[in-house]
């Protein structure tokens, strides 16, 4: 989902308090439609610009409810497509993850 290359860093599943602070400062959030938020900004670790959709609902084959109440904090992983050495095939991004708070503010 990213389209800007950052410095080449190896894939590593890592987090830090600073990631959340930086993402809260640099990310933007847009409500695309009811139940769909779009977070966008540079990954605090690899700097690739990523956009992360956050949905209320998802299709799950086999029935059952896939929806969860929107959490106050959302754990976000870097989903860039930039090359990061050591990344397993089933993974995306550089491995960075952080939590970001979403709060309805005054409009």
């Amino acid at each position: 989902m990213g389209d800007d290359a950052g410095p080449v860093v190896a894939y590593e599943e890592v987090t830090a308090a600073e990631f959340g602070v930086r993402a809260a400062r640099t990310f933007t959030v847009e409500q695309v439609e009811p139940g769909v938020l779009l977070l966008g900004g540079p990954c605090p670790r690899c700097d690739a610009v990523i956009s992360i959709p956050i949905f209320d609902r998802v299709f799950r084959y086999g029935g059952g409810s896939a929806g969860e109440k929107a959490p106050r904090y959302e754990t976000v992983v870097c989903t860039c497509d930039e090359p990061h050495p050591g990344r397993p095939e089933s993974r995306v991004g550089c491995g960075a993850f952080w939590a970001i708070g979403l709060r309805e503010g005054p409009s």
């Binding site: 959030v29 708070g101 979403l102 709060r103």
Partner: peptide, 11 residues
């Protein structure tokens, strides 16, 4: 309008 804030360090 939705505001962003830093979250706790995730596990």
């Amino acid at each position: 309008m939705i505001e962003l804030s830093p979250g706790p360090v995730p596990t």
